[in-house]
Amino acid sequence: MPHSTGSLCGTAVAAFALISLMVPQPHLAAQQPAAPTGAYAASPYLGEIRDAVLYGDIWERPQLSARDRSLVTVAVNQALYATNELRIHMGRALDNGVTQSEIAELIAHVLWYSGFPTGVNAARVAAEVFEQRGLPTSPPESSPRESRADADPLFPGAFPATPYLSDLLNQVVYAETWERPELSPRDRSLITVAVGTALYASSEVRYHVGRALDNGVTQEEISEVITHVTFYSGFPTGVNASRVAAGVFEQRGLPLPDARFPGAPYLDTLIDDLVYGETWPRSELSLRDRSLITIAMTQAAYQTDQLRVHLRRGLDNGITPEELSEMMAHVTLYAGFPVGVNGSRLLAEVLRERGIPLPN
């Protein structure tokens, strides 16, 4: 896909403003929800990105239907425990044709990939949304649970050290949950690829991209899911999922576009124009400060590949090895020792490859 010239966000803002003066835009009014009151008052640039890029561009792209985008957005916000966004997008999903039963089933499906606390939270939010819409608390179409303990295991050798986990995986997740009729296999694959992307779960993305292809999701749709989810879980997650998906596409003999991110090629344009072409050069923060923030975020999220990239970029932007060392310790207190150990290891690698002595 050719790269656009100039600022993606700035150009989009101007273009949409001009169009709105000339032509009524009922489809945009239907697609774009009203921002929560005051949500962007403290960060107007974020509001511009929301209006011009997220809703003005991403949600309008034809590669996924509005219904599919709502499915994956609700799933990702559940997985990330993003309660306010989850509430907004459950209502939006109902408006986009997702049924009450499908939302209820989505919650049950996603919790196997992001944990029961996310399912409990999402169920509570769903009950509130259903009540506000005048819908019954319990979806009338939901089918009862049917135990499939006698089903042939999909992964018979999985988790030999934890056999009960193997039983849950084979008998409950795949033999039971994936077979329930409230969501099609295609819908479940869209949701699961989205959640794997958001959680930076490379092995899950790898398996479920292949399963999605088997369940009728096209290569273009998988790429678009990754692009869409990027705006809800961050560009590092999209870059990682694009890399993993490209490997699966190649193994399947599918053609790859000539792009840096062939698993989700529209990321090329977004990263060049919005991330590095527009946001990083903004004068409100120095490049050094932006590197500090990005390193802290990628360390805290255990995003190893992106942390390595931004440690190098941080050195180029004037952060000293001593400052990076101190950051590793500081972030550890807020994100935990595992991320501190991982960050320290990566910092040592980057310093050695640059021929820089390790801090005392």
Rank of each mutant, 00 (worst) to 15 (best):
P257G: 05
L270N: 04
D268Q: 06
Q251N: 06
S283D: 09
G238R: 10
P262G: 08
D273H: 13
D258H: 14
S286D: 03
R290Y: 00
R288Y: 01
L287R: 12
R288V: 00
L267Q: 02
F249Q: 15
N240W: 11
D258C: 04
P262V: 14
Y266M: 15
D289A: 05
I271L: 14
R260G: 15
Y266C: 15
Y276V: 15
S286A: 03
A245D: 09
V275W: 01
R288Q: 00
I271A: 12
Q251L: 00
E250T: 08
V248A: 04
N240L: 11
D273F: 05
V275F: 05
V239R: 11
P262N: 12
L274S: 09
E250P: 03
T269V: 11
R243H: 10
R282E: 02
D268K: 05
Y276M: 15
G238H: 10
Y276D: 15
P236H: 13
A246R: 01
Y276F: 15
Y266P: 14
R290I: 00
E250H: 11
N240C: 13
S242A: 11
G238E: 12
S242W: 07
A264M: 10
L270K: 02
L287D: 14
S286R: 01
R282W: 02
S242K: 09
S242G: 07
V239I: 15
T269I: 10
R252I: 02
S283K: 07
P257L: 09
A259T: 07
V248K: 04
R260C: 11
P265W: 04
Q251F: 00
P265V: 11
L287P: 12
D273E: 15
P262W: 09
L287M: 13
L287S: 15
S242F: 08
G253N: 03
R252D: 10
S286E: 01
P257K: 03
R282N: 07
Y276L: 14
L267W: 00
L256N: 07
T279D: 06
S283T: 13
E284D: 08
L270A: 08
L285G: 00
L287K: 10
R243I: 04
A246E: 02
D272F: 09
T279H: 10
G253S: 03
R290E: 01
E250R: 09
I271N: 03
P262S: 12
E278S: 07
P255D: 12
R252E: 13
G277S: 06
L256M: 08
L285T: 02
A264K: 08
G277D: 06
I271F: 07
A259I: 08
V248R: 07
L285I: 02
F249S: 15
A259R: 08
Q251V: 00
Y276T: 15
E278T: 05
D272W: 11
T279L: 12
